[in-house]
Amino acid sequence: MECLTHKSEIADTFSSVRSFSYNEKKSPLIDQERINSFLDSLLEFRKSLKEKTETIISFNDRIERITWYNDLDEECYMLINDLISTIKDLHSSLIRQYISMNYIRQKGIAKEEIREFKNTIDVLKENYQDLESVFFFLPEISEFKETTKLLSLV
């Protein structure tokens, strides 16, 4: 009687192992597809974030160059004012995007790309603040204007 029970348990075990083994032979293919798809998404995310960062870096360079333009007229100042508002708007969208990446960042995914993205949008913020200083705030400080005048005599 005892022997029969053992035989049944062995057969059950055999059956379970066989079934699991069969599924495992099949499943790696399915899992590999999922992994590939996940890795593709990850690569795509990294690539698009890198491209976005490069675009912002090129904006940052162009914004800095504006401070070297001379003899700007009223229309240019109005355009610069509009540009500052648009950069502020862009910056707040980008910060929202960065915050939405918190979960990914905490998991250590695309850490370097996300850090570079954040650094670049921080510079973007600094740049619109600098534009405001250079074109609208510093020229209103009388001490500043006076120093520029005196320096031209040095």
Binding site: T67, V123, N127, V134, T148, L151, S152
Partner: peptide, 24 residues
């Protein structure tokens, strides 16, 4: 060396703010 943010709109004597090593 005439690169960075020019603060004073001067061609002859530019007052410059320069970022070294990027944002951080």
């Amino acid at each position: 060396l005439s690169a960075g943010v020019r603060l004073n709109n001067s061609e002859d004597n530019p007052y410059i703010k320069k970022r070294l090593n990027g944002r951080g």
